[in-house]
Write a protein that binds this DNA or RNA. Structure first.
Length: 497
RNA sequence: GCCAAGGUGGCAGAGUCCGGCCGAACGCAGCGGCCUGCAGAGCCGCCUACCGCCGGUUCAAAUCCGGCCCUUGGCUCCA
């Protein structure tokens, strides 16, 4: 089977065919940098990252663009808070840096470009002008609005009729609008102090003062700021093309954001804006979604610190990108179990390959066949709309095959083990899992110390002092170091990764 | 109210587009056995689901059609 994806536009799972058979233009709707990224963002990022990796695995050259919205009232509302910065752009930049660092810690492939709104105002203005010239937009009191009645397909992504769409944007803007569903492409003036007040945190600058730091730009309609939706159209066209292959984003953006992107882009270019629209579903916790606005989130930084990258990625890919996923201590602990099972099998296989018991003449046909089958299953799963959960299952089957092969055997199938190790490394990396994370100097030191303690413990065991030996093991365990006694002596695993 | 997604074992979560291989994957939890000084890990086996409810189509439905109930998301900033 070739790659199939579920397209929000049609509601169907379709074969994926990029415009250019060798290249994929991928745009991901990034975030507004006004809060620390949370696990919900991480879930989408990781899924997009896995899409990116799988497309490359299939041989495509992926041009991946991901924007940062750095012009927004909520950012202005943070001015003066903590050490974020003294004006809108400083605050935005400090969150951009934090976001990029969170992304690195999640082992995400870098996008080709991370465009910012503030750096694309000329392109935005051009686009708005085009829309005005073509009669799709109109100016009103220095602001420019998109006229939804002029765009026949309005509502095609979210499946809504224009009559059903009550209104968008600030209620007080309505008087300036011809149709309640019209949305702002360009907003006159600066930022409104009331809007700041709404999002302001303790310790931030006074709204009046914060407003003064908001950025504004000159335009044919006077001083103002870009509207929320137009940026993605302008940036994706600038860095990719008029027609994208893959446009990905969170489910909560379908309406109005993505709907508006389609309207303004297609009205301006007369070309299809994106051939495939993919939407990542949201986390569910205690029967509601996780989100910045509800404040019920876990930051990426805390999560990485607590669980580590591999556990987190195992967790985040434990469901399909387009199904909601339950966030709880139990579900994340379960992911940890799964990752550790994989990791232990990997280590066992890697050790066995290097051991003198691995013989090139030994052949376990069933073992090899199982690994081969798991490889195929992994590919089938990924091609089936990036079914990461099934892909994980395939990996786990390799783990079981390894353990089973190693069980009670004197001699090992060298080639079979090598193939299993390679399968885990190669397929694992599609999910962004790393079995061979570089060991830091600190970890090496810790390892040396653990070796020392285990030597002492072995002596105690030989002397029959099991009580003392168990104590040592318990104490190591309390530090998160897992000790296992095997026929070849004790082995251990350090807590992180 | 309108739009969208979903309701599968103790938990979690595939499968539903292309009906039979699904009495239902993988994993976690639980149980039994092996291994072990013990424990853990591991191996082998077992356990628990007729797939929201009702009706229909079909030789055959978790999968198709109709109705109903419930949950979540969007319609305001949001991945």
């Amino acid at each position: 089977m070739t790659l199939h994806v579920t397209n929000t536009l049609t509601g169907e799972t379709e074969p994926f065919e990029p415009q250019d058979p060798d290249n994929v233009l991928l745009y991901y709707c990034g975030l507004t940098v006004s809060d620390p990224p949370h696990l919900g963002h991480a879930r989408s990022w990781v899924h997009v990252d896995v899409m990116h990796r799988w497309l490359e695995f299939l041989g495509y050259d992926v041009r991946h663009v991901e924007n940062f919205t750095d012009v927004n009232e909520k950012i202005v509302a943070r001015v003066g808070e903590d050490d974020l910065g003294e004006d809108e752009s400083e605050v935005a930049e400090s969150y951009v840096e934090r976001t990029l660092s969170d992304m690195r810690s999640l082992n995400l492939l870098r996008a080709e470009v991370y465009p910012r709104v503030s750096e694309h105002v000329p392109e935005i203005i051009d686009l708005v002008e085009t829309l005005v010239e073509k009669g799709y937009a109109y100016e009103s009191n220095g602001s420019v609005y998109f006229d939804v009645t002029q765009f026949d397909d309005y509502g095609k992504l979210s499946n809504q009729e224009l009559e059903e769409i009550e209104s968008q944007g600030d209620p007080d803007e309505r008087s300036e609008k011809r149709h309640p569903a019209d949305f702002a492409l360009w907003k006159a003036g600066g930022v409104d102090a009331d809007a700041i007040e709404e999002h302001r945190h303790e310790g931030a600058a006074e709204p009046e003062k914060a407003c003064e730091t908001a950025q504004t730009w000159d335009s044919p309609w006077g001083e103002g700021r870009p509207g929320w939706h137009i940026e993605c159209s302008a940036m994706s066209m600038t860095h990719l093309d008029e027609t994208l292959d893959l446009h990905v984003g969170g489910r909560d953006l379908v309406f109005p954001h993505h709907e508006n992107e389609i309207a303004q882009s297609e009205a301006a270019t007369d070309a299809t804006f994106a051939n495939y629209w993919l939407h990542c579903e949201l986390f569910e916790m205690d029967d509601e979604k996780m989100s910045s606005s509800l404040g019920n989130f876990v930051t990426v930084e805390d999560a990485v610190e607590r669980w580590g990258t591999n556990v987190l990625r195992t967790f985040l890919t434990a469901g399909s990108y387009n199904s909601t996923q339950l966030y709880s201590d139990e579900t994340i602990a379960e992911a940890e179990e799964r990752w550790e099972r994989l990791e232990r099998a990997y280590e066992a296989a890697a050790d066995a390959v290097d051991s003198p018991d691995a013989r090139t003449k030994v052949e376990d046909a069933e073992f090899r066949a199982t690994v081969e089958k798991a490889r195929e299953a992994f590919g089938e799963a990924m091609n089936d709309d990036f079914n990461t959960r099934e892909a994980q299952s395939a990996l786990l089957e390799v783990a079981t095959a390894i353990n089973s092969h190693l069980e009670g055997r004197e001699e090992y199938d060298y080639r079979g083990l090598r193939e299993a190790v390679e399968a885990l490394e190669e397929l694992g990396s599609v999910l962004g899992l790393s079995f061979t994370g570089e060991t830091t100097g600190e970890a090496n030191l810790a390892g040396d110390v653990v070796d020392l303690v285990l030597d002492v413990r072995e002596q105690e065991r030989e002397d029959g002092n099991y009580e003392r030996a168990d104590e040592l093991r318990d104490e190591l365990e309390a530090l998160g170091i897992e000790v296992q006694d095997t026929d070849d002596g004790p082995t251990y695993r350090l807590p992180s990764e």
